[in-house]
Amino acid sequence: MNIFRFAGDMTHLASVLVLLLKIHTIKSCAGISLKTQELYALVFATRYLDLFTDYISLYNTLMKLIFLGSSFSIVWYIRYHKIVRRSYDKDQDTFRHYFLVLPCLLLALLINEKFTFREVMWTFSLYLEAVAILPQLVLLQRTRNIDNLTGQYVFLLGAYRALYILNWIYRYFTEPHYVHWITWISGLVQTLLYADFFYYYFQSWKNNVKLELPA
C-alpha cells in the first residue's frame, strides 16, 4: 500500500469521525444531508459484499467494517435519535434518491467488467459513490450558515477522493497491468464534483471568512 492510498483512507476515516463527532457530541446534524448518508450506506453495503468471501488483509476487513458500521449508525442517528433528528433540515434536503440510484444501477448493468451479481453490485457502488455527494452539495448551497464541522466534513471527503487519484497514478506506474477504467473514470467524476466546493473552501480559508456557497 502506497502513501497516497493510506493518506486517502485516513482522510476518509477522519471525515467520518468529524461527522460522528458533530452528531454524537453536539447532538446536531444541521446542514448534513440524510440523502447523501443513506446513499453512502447503500454504497458500502453493495461494495463490501466480498467481506465474508474474500480475505485481503486485516486492515482491509477492519476498514470495511468501520465504513459499514459508521454509515449505518449515522443514518440511524439522523432518522431516529430523539435529539439529533430535530436538527435535521428536512425541508431543505429534498433531493430524490432514485434520480441517482436508478441511472447508476442501469449503467452498472450495461458497463461492467464481468456480468456477475457481485461484480455488477461492485460497479454500481462505484457509480453511486461518484454522485452520492450531490444531495449534500445542494444542501450546502441552500444552507446560508455552514458550520465549521460540516465544511470540514465535505472538505475531508473531497481530499480523500483526490488522494485516491494520486494513488491510482502511483500504482499505474509501479504495478504491472494495473488498469481499471471504470474505477478511474467514476473516481475522476466524483472528484470533479468537489471542484466548486474546494474553490470556495480555500477562498474562505485564505480570507479568513465564514464559508458560504453562492446560490
Partner: peptide, 10 residues
Amino acid sequence: LEQPHMHDEL
C-alpha cells in the same frame, strides 16, 4: 491471460 480482479481498495 485474464487478470484476477482484486478488490483491494476501499
